[in-house]
């Protein structure tokens, strides 16, 4: 039954989107984290999606092929009174842009909702098919 593979396809998309949401959550949580003694602050992460064929050639699921660290420069804030400030009075913070992350979050949650709706519709149709002839 070809419609059953919708659950595999949408399920893979849901799991990929939730991983993306997870990465956004850790980025946002660390947005204001300051660098430790080694001077290395938190670097924002981004997931990379990749199409993965499922069964026949028409079904295409998604998977996260890699999680990349951002190479943007770390943010430096002038705050001489901070205990982690360097000799010039600068504190190194993460390179996460909270606005970008919020947009990313909304996009991920909308895509997640879309795929849940696809699964619900497919489930309704399959249940109605089961009742055929009754």
């Amino acid at each position: 039954m070809s419609m059953f593979s919708i659950f595999n396809v949408s399920g893979s998309a849901i799991s990929a989107q939730s991983q993306r949401l997870n990465v956004v959550a850790s980025n946002l949580a660390n947005a204001d984290a300051v660098a430790g003694p080694d001077g290395q602050g938190y670097k924002g992460r981004q997931v990379v999606f990749e199409t993965v064929p499922m069964g026949s050639d028409a079904s295409a699921g998604v998977r996260v092929s890699s999680v990349n660290e951002s190479n943007d420069p770390l943010r430096k804030v002038h705050n001489p009174s901070h205990p982690s400030a360097d000799a010039d009075g600068y504190v190194t913070q993460s390179n996460v842009n909270p606005i970008e992350e919020m947009v990313n979050m909304i996009s991920a949650s909308r895509s997640y909702q879309n795929n849940v709706e696809v699964m619900n519709t497919a489930k309704t149709l399959l249940l109605k098919t089961l009742q055929m002839g009754q």
Binding site: M1, I6, V9, S10, A13, S59, A60, V62, L125
Partner: peptide, 18 residues
């Protein structure tokens, strides 16, 4: 059913580059 499956794949890949 076939078309439903194809469209589901499109929606699943709405954020996939390429």
């Amino acid at each position: 059913a076939e078309r439903q499956r194809v469209i589901a794949s499109n929606i699943a890949n709405a954020d996939t580059p390429g």
